[in-house]
Write a protein that binds this DNA or RNA. Structure first.
Ligand code: SF4
Ligand code: SF4
Lengths: 164, 164
DNA sequence: CTGAAACGGGACCAATCCGGTCCCAATTGG
DNA sequence: CCAATTGGGACCGGATTGGTCCCGTTTCAG
């Protein structure tokens, strides 16, 4: 169905939340804030750290924070963090595995162009853009009825100068 | 890994072959021409017919042919034929299922923008463009060494006025 | 009229992938 | 030392995917 992984989706949601918070927060806080189960948040954060998108601090009063400004984190970066290089097919240049047909398949070379087009599209949208505006009304499917009180803004009073 | 389905990949390969042939040909011919196993070709073609991208003729001397000019078949069409509507996440407008978080997830609306960007990228490349040129050398990963004699051009002599 | 050739619509299965959870070691501040 | 956190997996059940096969239907050739 041409979906991104659910975990990747979560990653973006979590990053968006972190961008709006702009301060170090523990995994369980982020979980409570987004409604994503704690173990899942933990798993996703590990991947994000490994990819260098967020920085982590261990020990008590530790937690996670964006490793670089939200302006420089594109959707493509987040996807690559969770799923590895963007490669629509096995014969694309930066795919980590190869297709045995690659040598004589007339389609082979063409996928690179498609792949590039997609990656460019995904690079053109940054985390900052999404964090800034609260999703234009024309984009929303539902009128936003909070069913459980989750997703409260991260302590609006003491959240400091949101964004890095 | 952000891959399209393998079957979708095959679909594009088969369509490209059909575009270059420009005449009605049986599934087993297309299979022999592309190196894709016959049963798989059959399966893919069924999907393509259902989606209206190719027209089929039954009976002996039947086969498949493109339903419309290759110029009007975009990569997005082929993907949608095999995988259904392009919807990166469940909360995208034209997704057939929904996410329970959709109402209060701050990311919800934003995915539509990403989705649109991707779809636009996929709509900008047509089958005709790919059928015309033989994949610029700069795109190819391998120097094209045919390991099995497959993928011979569809009878260059009597192939008629290639393309619709 | 008969039969071969071809498509149509599935059922079917093995293998893989994915999501989700959990456990324990390592680190750090109090 | 203790509590709070992250790090790095293992683990598993369910869903998806790739691939094959079977049988009914349609159509043309002879
Ligand atoms: S070489 Fe051909 S079959 Fe193999 S991945 Fe590329 S397009 Fe698909
Ligand atoms: S609503 Fe939020 S969690 Fe659900 S699919 Fe959309 S972005 Fe992902």
């Amino acid at each position: 169905m041409f979906r991104i992984n659910k975990l990747t989706d979560y990653a973006v949601v979590l990053l968006l939340d972190m961008a709006r918070a702009g301060q170090v927060r523990a995994a369980h806080q982020i979980a409570a804030d987004t409604g994503v189960p704690v173990p899942t948040v933990a798993k996703v954060m590990k991947a994000l750290v490994r990819a260098g998108l967020v920085r982590s601090t261990r020990g008590s009063s530790g937690g996670y924070v964006l490793a670089r400004p939200a302006e420089s984190i594109a959707v493509a970066d987040m996807i690559e963090a969770l799923e590895g290089p963007i490669a629509l097919t096995a014969c694309v240049l930066d795919a980590d595995d190869t297709c045995e047909r690659e040598g004589f398949c007339p389609m082979s070379g063409h996928w690179n162009r498609v792949n590039t087009a997609v990656r460019k599209a995904l690079t053109g949208i940054t985390l900052a853009e999404m964090a800034a505006r609260p999703a234009p009304a024309s984009w929303r499917a539902q009128p936003a009825t909070d069913p459980g009180g989750v997703f409260r803004r991260p302590a609006p009073a003491d959240s400091g100068p949101a964004l890095a």
